[in-house]
């Protein structure tokens, strides 16, 4: 029955991939920005968690209460004070700026924390598992990861479709100039989107940090993670562990319809 276990583990890990991909697609969906520092910002979230755990001596999962708002603010300011200026003109500028940012974060973390492997200790939940009978068992932590991932995606989806601000996100994505004519401040929307995306990505970084170890230099590998998931999702594949992330359909649908808008204007 080991293969069943492998499949279950795979599905549960898929949740983490989905979180990475959601962050990347949200930012791409709203402002056509591909953030090359995505992975590094996720690692930065894990390190922020590490520091807080060290100071407050709490469970890393509990520290998320502080880590997530902090990362949200970082994301908001990053977009508002820096990346917004790169959105005018060709699409090369945001790429170069976020690439530079990636180098800054990696080396900044290296200076602050050395190249040693770190891990986050979430206590009993890491090793406890739920027996399903017949030799099958599901770890509580992977299960929690999956539940959180699904929750985040569902919440984000209903935020985008049901709320006033969510509609403003989609309107800005469709046509930022027309959105401004509705009284929507696109710079603010972009910054909110970056803040939310980084919050999601930092969440993934912390869960990943509990699951395995991390180093300052591992960010790019996480970016590639996210990228693979976006490509898989983007190509409409819905097999195996990716099934949980069928919500990726929305950024895709979204991107294609706004491309049409771009052509007609």
């Amino acid at each position: 029955m080991t293969w069943v276990n492998v499949v279950i583990q795979g599905v549960l890990l898929g949740g983490l991939y989905a979180l990475y991909a959601t962050g990347l697609s949200l930012v791409f969906g709203v402002m056509r920005l591909v953030n090359l520092a995505h992975g590094d910002l996720s690692i930065m979230g894990a390190f922020a968690c590490l520091v807080l755990v060290g100071i407050l001596d709490v469970n890393p999962l509990l520290s998320l209460v502080l880590v997530l708002p902090m990362i949200f603010v970082v994301g908001y300011l990053l977009q508002r004070l820096m990346l917004n200026f790169t959105l005018k003109g060709d699409d090369m500028r945001p790429l170069l700026a976020t690439f530079g940012l990636s180098v800054i974060i990696q080396n900044g973390l290296l200076v602050g924390f050395s190249a040693d492997s770190r891990g986050l200790d979430a206590g009993w939940i890491e090793n406890a598992s739920l027996s399903l009978g017949g030799g099958l068992a599901v770890g509580w932590f992977p299960l929690l990861t999956l539940v959180v991932a699904i929750l985040v995606i569902v919440l984000l989806n209903s935020f985008l479709t049901r709320t006033r601000l969510g509609r403003a996100f989609r309107a800005t994505s469709d046509d930022q100039e027309a959105a401004r004519l509705m009284g929507i401040d696109n710079r603010h929307i972009y910054a909110l989107a970056m803040g939310i995306a980084l919050g999601i990505v930092a969440l993934a970084g912390v869960f990943m940090g509990i699951r395995t170890t991390f180093t300052p230099g591992i960010g790019p590998a996480r970016l590639i993670f996210a990228f693979e998931a976006v490509i898989m999702g983007g190509l409409g594949s819905s097999w195996g562990p990716w099934r949980v992330a069928s919500h990726w359909a929305w950024p895709r649908r979204w991107a294609s319809s706004s491309r049409r808008a771009g052509e007609s204007s």
Binding site: R164, R167, A168, A171, A179, M182, G183, S257, R260, A261
Partner: peptide, 20 residues
């Protein structure tokens, strides 16, 4: 060129119109 929000529904377009 009208510039309605293509991916939003008619109703949502009007709701967005009320943003400001």
């Amino acid at each position: 060129g009208r510039r309605v929000f293509p991916s939003l529904t008619v109703h949502e377009n009007l709701q967005v119109g009320a943003h400001g």
